[in-house]
Design a protein around this nucleic acid. Structure first.
Lengths: 182, 182
DNA sequence: GCATGCATGTAAGGAGTTACATGATTCA
DNA sequence: TGAATCATGTAACTCCTTACATGCATGC
């Protein structure tokens, strides 16, 4: 990665068609954000940098008296995007406070660990519902790669939720057995 | 979270027994790091802050002429750890450059997307091997929660690796069909 | 004698979030 | 008229990584 990561998110979205910064943010929120987030504080400054670098171009197109800038990708930008897409991915980071708590749960009661697992499961099931909610639109558009990734997302969160359920049950079973033998 | 996230990693490890900053880092590297990383740049300053706050205590215990500080958790520290463990987890962040590339792969050839998936799969299988490598030691120690989390880690990366394999195959099958009908 | 590991630390900077400020438009 | 949404932006901050510096100990 030569450009910063947010730059590629922007190039990727603009390659699908011209958009404003606001629209990029909104679309990130209900799609790529489940595996790659981006905030206004990154997007707006990065749009300026990419324009200066000639990888995107902005056109003022106000809606009524409300000013707005629509950006589109340039040939150079498209080339840079393709170059990045063809290089092997590097970053894979997971930051899961629930797993961290579970790891250290020897310091608390089994019921506390079970509650952590239940909360984790609820989070993942909520994600499943959210992703399922946007699937029909993506499917009807025949959305190619975004649809593949979306379906992966659903399966992923379902799998993790089920693993949490299983761990919780094992935990409670074991705890019950230990109480019985005591 | 009132303390910073790294603080809880430190409290958690010290609750398992006294350790130096160096040992904490080493142990994070081959266990919690798969879902929660921590670097020297966070650990050493945080150890000082926690000591000032009275949540841990440091004792100088040089090995030969090599100076070293062993930290242990205090009753206040243990209480803070338990309080945190009993609160529901919040942070769950995934940052997966491979999925990001896959999402935007409409801009490149199917072979490029397949290569991305193969690289992702290789990464996850490497993780499986790494985690499997430390499992025997954890299992023989009867390591409780750390072992549960470790086994989850193995299953998790195996599942993701298999999902990548499946997506790659679907992709190549579809591409072959399209070439045939063209 | 040299590489590796133990051990502690910091400086610089990148990456990212949050909160705020501003102002127009739309719709109930 | 007021809330929600469209739209852009920045300042302050946290979090985290990387790279470097230092120096002792151990084993080849």
């Amino acid at each position: 990665m030569e450009l910063n990561p947010t730059a590629y998110v922007i190039l990727g979205w603009l390659n699908l068609g011209p958009r404003s910064g606001y629209e990029i943010k909104a679309q990130v929120e209900d799609s790529t954000r489940f595996f790659w987030a981006a905030s206004y504080g990154q997007i707006y400054p990065e749009l300026k940098r990419l324009e200066t670098a000639g990888l995107i171009g902005g056109t003022s197109s106000p809606q009524g008296g409300r000013k707005r800038t629509i950006f589109e990708i340039t040939p150079d930008g498209r080339e840079e995007l393709r170059r990045w897409l063809q290089a092997p991915p590097e970053t894979f980071e997971l930051r899961d406070e629930g797993l961290l708590k579970l790891f250290f749960s020897g310091a608390v009661e089994p019921q506390d660990a079970a509650r952590t697992l239940r909360a984790m499961r609820d989070q993942h099931l909520a994600k499943v519902r959210q992703l399922r909610g946007i699937e029909p639109k993506a499917a009807s558009k025949g959305d190619g790669y975004p649809l593949i990734v979306l379906r992966f997302g659903v399966a992923y969160h379902e799998w993790v939720a089920e693993a949490c359920r299983q761990m919780e049950q094992d935990l409670l079973d074991e705890d019950r057995d230990q109480r019985r033998s005591a």
